[in-house]
Design a protein around this nucleic acid. Sequence first.
DNA 1: CATTTGACCGTCG
DNA 2: TCGACGGCCAAAT
Length: 110
Amino acid sequence: MKPETLNFFERVYEVAKKIPYGRVTSYGAIAVYLGAQRGARMVGYAMNNAHGKDVPAHRVVNRKGLLTGKHHFEGTNLMQQLLENEGVEVVENQIQNFDDVFWSPSEALH
DNA sequence: CATTTGACCGTCG
DNA sequence: TCGACGGCCAAAT
């Protein structure tokens, strides 16, 4: 791994790790917190590298609350199972009561 | 060094 | 209200 990656990826990991239990956030929210409002895709890209780390990527979804990245997990419904295990209601890869379980890093971490 | 891709988001039709 | 297109930034090939 290149140490240069620590700049952007590390930031995403730090925020993702700070996501409270039973809460989820969106790529865009993290991107905004990092100052890259237009770089939401980079957050997702960073998550791809988050494999093997203690980053709860299953708590990170798109702004629609849709589990777009479930395909990147080991199983097909692993991501959904993890969320449901934390008390998050998920139906058809869609998080229910998304605004209720939504966790904004900008508000929580300022 | 240039091109493609990517776990997205916002706007326009 | 829903579907399609472009934009943005960075890493990989």
